[in-house]
Simulated assay, not measured.
Amino acid sequence: MEDDEILFNEIMTRYGQDILQLVFSYVRNKQLAEDLTQDIFVKCYKALHTYKQNAKLKTWLFKIASNHCKDYLRSWYFRKVIATEKMAEMTVSSGQNVEQAVLEHEEEQTIANAVLKLPMKYREVIYLFYFEDMSLKEIESVLDVNQNTVKSRLKRAKSLLKEELEDLDGGK
Rank of each mutant, 00 (worst) to 15 (best):
E106K: 02
S75I: 13
D133W: 10
L61F: 01
E107Y: 14
K63M: 05
E132C: 08
V150N: 00
D133S: 12
Y127N: 13
I126C: 00
E99K: 07
T110W: 01
R79S: 04
S93R: 15
A65P: 08
Y72F: 02
N113P: 10
F62R: 05
D71P: 08
L118R: 03
Q96I: 10
Q53G: 12
M120P: 05
Q53I: 13
Q147M: 13
L103W: 06
E107W: 12
R153Y: 14
V92N: 03
I111S: 04
T91F: 03
I139T: 06
E89S: 11
V142E: 02
E106G: 05
V145L: 02
N146S: 04
N54S: 08
N146Y: 09
K86Y: 06
A112I: 15
E108N: 14
W76C: 11
V98A: 03
K63G: 10
L116V: 13
V42A: 00
A88R: 08
T59W: 11
V125P: 00
M90V: 14
K137P: 11
E132G: 01
E138L: 04
M87D: 13
E124N: 09
S75M: 06
F129T: 09
E85S: 06
Y51M: 06
K70I: 11
V125M: 03
M134Q: 04
K80N: 12
Y72A: 02
W76Y: 13
K52G: 14
P119M: 05
T110Y: 07
K52H: 04
S94P: 08
K63R: 12
I111W: 00
L118V: 15
R123C: 13
W76K: 12
K63Y: 11
N148Y: 07
Q147E: 11
E104S: 09
M90T: 14
N97C: 06
T50Y: 05
E85R: 08
Q147A: 09
V142Y: 01
A114D: 02
R153G: 03
D144Y: 05
L73I: 03
Y130S: 04
D144V: 14
I126Q: 00
K80F: 08
H68Q: 07
A65M: 02
